[in-house]
Amino acid sequence: MATNDPQNDTTELACVEESLMSLEKLDRASPDLWPEQRVNEFIAQNLPPTDQTSWSTALTSDDINQLHQLGNLTVTGLIAEVKKLHDEAYQLGLEEAKEMTRGKYLNIFKNNK
Rank of each mutant, 00 (worst) to 15 (best):
A2N: 02
A2R: 01
A2H: 03
N4I: 07
N4Q: 02
N4F: 08
D5A: 02
D5E: 04
Q7E: 03
N8E: 10
D9L: 00
D9M: 07
T10N: 04
T10G: 03
T11E: 05
E12Y: 07
L13H: 04
A14I: 03
C15F: 14
V16N: 10
V16H: 08
E18I: 08
S19H: 14
L20F: 03
L20Y: 05
M21C: 15
M21H: 11
K25R: 15
L26T: 14
L26R: 14
D27Q: 09
D27S: 10
D32I: 04
D32Y: 08
W34K: 04
W34I: 13
W34N: 05
P35Y: 08
N40F: 08
N40G: 07
F42M: 11
F42S: 15
I43R: 03
I43P: 05
I43C: 00
A44N: 06
A44F: 01
A44M: 08
A44D: 06
A44R: 04
A44K: 06
Q45I: 00
N46Q: 11
L47K: 13
P48E: 12
T50L: 09
D51T: 10
D51P: 00
Q52N: 00
T53F: 01
S54V: 03
W55Q: 06
W55D: 06
T57S: 07
T57V: 14
L59Y: 00
T60Y: 11
D62M: 03
D63A: 06
D63Q: 12
D63T: 03
I64S: 00
I64M: 05
I64G: 00
Q69K: 10
Q69C: 02
Q69V: 08
Q69A: 14
L70P: 00
G71R: 06
N72R: 00
L73K: 11
T74L: 08
T74W: 01
V75R: 10
V75L: 13
V75T: 07
T76D: 12
T76N: 13
L78F: 15
L78S: 10
I79A: 13
I79P: 01
I79V: 08
A80K: 15
E81C: 11
E81R: 10
K84A: 06
L85I: 00
H86Q: 01
D87G: 05
D87E: 07
D87L: 04
E88T: 13
A89S: 03
A89C: 06
A89K: 00
A89I: 06
Y90F: 05
Q91D: 10
Q91H: 11
Q91R: 13
L92A: 10
L92F: 01
L92K: 13
G93S: 14
G93Y: 12
G93I: 12
L94G: 04
E95R: 07
E96G: 09
E96S: 09
K98E: 03
M100S: 12
T101R: 02
T101S: 00
T101Y: 02
R102L: 12
R102C: 09
G103A: 04
K104Q: 15
K104P: 08
Y105N: 09
Y105L: 03
L106T: 11
L106M: 14
N107G: 04
F109Y: 11
F109T: 09
F109A: 06
K110G: 02
N111Q: 13
N111I: 15
N112T: 03
N112Q: 11
N112V: 01
K113A: 12
